[in-house]
Design a protein around this nucleic acid. Structure first.
Length: 271
DNA sequence: CGGGCCACCTGGCGGC
DNA sequence: TGCCGCCAGGTGGCCC
């Protein structure tokens, strides 16, 4: 279930628990995640102190004292659990131990990944090499967006989910931000006015920030229990509401497919 | 190069 | 109860 706010929440949770600690053990139960776990990962990680923890796009980055970065991605179904009280489970693929803390990486669908690279090579890493700005950064502004979209005829929803344009906006937040902006997900990217783009950016940022705040408030539950509490489910205004009345105008919410992904929108409010 | 489609993998749910 | 098909919050590759 991870979108950007959730990954941010995970990174924050890890920072609170294991920043400054060193790896004392690693148990790898299976190597074949989306990409194979490198066989030299344990050698590069064991004994190393975590000097910083950050997030880039939907990747959690653990910066190590030996100038390597441990990179983790949750895919569609991944969880990172800190000292879980539950017994080990089938899809606990990797377990890190740091002094008294256990970090469990669980991912039933194995769309997630764990890898490591020298810090200096991070930007050239396959997954981060061609990525656009962070949605919450100053670089993601209307000037950037209008320039980048000027020749794009792709529907705006597909565009804001394109990591080369802007990273970290998943399907739910794309739907929610477009709803708040009263922009149709089908609108061609290059036909939006600069006022619309400014408004869209503002709504993307507000929605993400709001969800990060919500994630933070239930952080403890999230890391200590099941993980899939759906802490922001209550705040969703359009996602998952097919055929239910729009909360603003009571028109029935539509569900369509765009680039293979479900899109929910109000055909009356969003034009 | 832009844009659409598909595959990767497992589990949950609704329908029959 | 059981089986089947469909669906899922991500991402990159391939093909036109």
């Amino acid at each position: 279930m991870p979108e950007l706010p959730e990954v941010e929440t995970v990174a924050t949770g890890l920072r609170n628990e294991i920043l400054g600690q060193s790896f004392t053990d690693i148990q790898i139960n299976r190597y074949d995640l989306r990409i194979p776990i490198p066989h030299d990962l344990p050698a590069l990680v064991l004994g190393q102190k975590i000097t910083a923890i950050s997030r880039r796009a939907k990747y959690v980055l653990l910066h190590l004292a030996n100038n390597h970065v441990l990179i983790m991605h949750l895919g569609m179904s991944g969880q990172i659990l800190i000292n879980p009280s539950r017994p080990p489970q089938k899809h606990d693929h990797l377990i890190f131990t740091l002094n008294n803390t256990k970090i469990v990486f669980n991912d039933p669908r194995r769309f997630g990944l764990i890898t490591i690279c020298p810090s200096a090579n991070l930007d050239q890493l396959q997954f981060l090499a061609k990525t656009g700005p962070e949605p919450l950064s100053p670089e993601f502004n209307s000037k950037y967006l209008s320039t980048t979209l000027s020749k794009r005829t792709t529907p705006i929803k597909t565009t804001i989910m394109n990591n080369e344009i802007v990273v970290g906006i998943g399907n739910i937040y794309a739907c929610e931000a477009l709803f708040r902006s009263k922009i149709s997900p089908l609108a061609k990217s290059n036909q939006l006015t600069s006022a619309q783009l400014t408004n869209l950016i503002s709504n993307i940022q507000q929605t993400l920030r709001q969800a990060i705040t919500a994630g933070g408030s239930s952080l403890k539950d999230y890391v200590s229990t099941k993980g899939e509490l759906g802490y922001f489910q209550n705040e969703l205004e359009v996602y998952g509401r097919k055929s239910l009345p729009c909360i603003k105008c009571h028109t029935s919410i539509s569900q369509i497919k765009q680039s293979g992904r479900s899109t929910f929108y109000c055909p009356n409010c969003q034009t």
